[in-house]
Amino acid sequence: MKKYVLKRTLTLIPVLFVVSVAIFMLVHIAPGDPAAALLGDRASQAEIDALRERMGLNDPLPVQYVNWVGGVLRGDLGESVFMQGSMTQILAEHMGPTLALTGWAVLLATLFAVPLGILAAKNQGRLADHLVSVTSMVGISMPSFLLGLLLVLLFAVQLQWLPAWGYVSIREGGFLAHLRSLILPAIALGFIESGLMIRMTRSAMLEVLQSDYIRMCKAKGVSPSGIFLKHALRNSLISILTVVGQSFMVLLSGATVVETVFNIPGIGQLTVNSVLRRDYEVIQAVVLLVSVMNVLICLVLDLLYGLIDPRARAGGEGV
């Protein structure tokens, strides 16, 4: 197990290297001078030169890269040209709403998708299975922001049951107001992922149900509900949990777009606003933070998987 943990952790190095180079290069693929683009047309040459100096743009590229990575490793993510406060502070402020939204979306998607996936697997080939397949197909094909807009139209504009946009944190308005502000965005975000989750749950259940030991149970005369609950469900739970874990990351990045629909001041909105004013250092910091989170979550999931399933350990990457 130790060897597996070490081996898997070492695979992070090239991935993180590529991630960091890609994110570093984002600033440099821009045509023209990034400092000039950042400051806009009205900036004087002296201002541009000062910013170039501050951003270290006068050094050769490899030196800039090493400086940037060195800064990141020391926890210095750069400075925003437009916003006050340290980058860490800016990111932390915007991360709260995004994490809350993502958390609710994962919860809703799981509560919706896992039972449906199990239902479909249990009734394979029957009407219920087909209905669930159609639901999951629609989920996969519906862009989250579109579903968000349609939900706003129905529940906020037509029925006026819920607020159209805005975000209330638990500290500001209490739990109920918090939930009211997040329920529509969480449904919009969660539904797209539930499509995939339904499919994965269904196929994980089917795989277990078709295995030899289930056939053996049947032959021994174990009751169908006993087989289902005791053996099938328990053994497919690992795959289902993996899907839920992975969905967290998908939804975290999907939140970017949904936040804009509902005016939630999370990292998505921060990114979009920074893109519109070309605040490169904020964009770099956000993309880096989310990517590193992604890589780490994958690592944890893989390690957990290795802990539970010895075959994953032995096979390494190829399994």
Binding site: P14, P31, S253, T256, V257, R278, Y280, V287
Partner: peptide
């Protein structure tokens, strides 16, 4: 490894960031 690295960055976010520079 380059593909692994690029797919570690969430796709919508990477596309947005690329459009910020281009």
């Amino acid at each position: 490894r380059v593909c692994d690295g690029l797919s570690a960055i969430p796709s919508t976010l990477l596309a947005i960031a690329l459009m910020a520079s281009l």
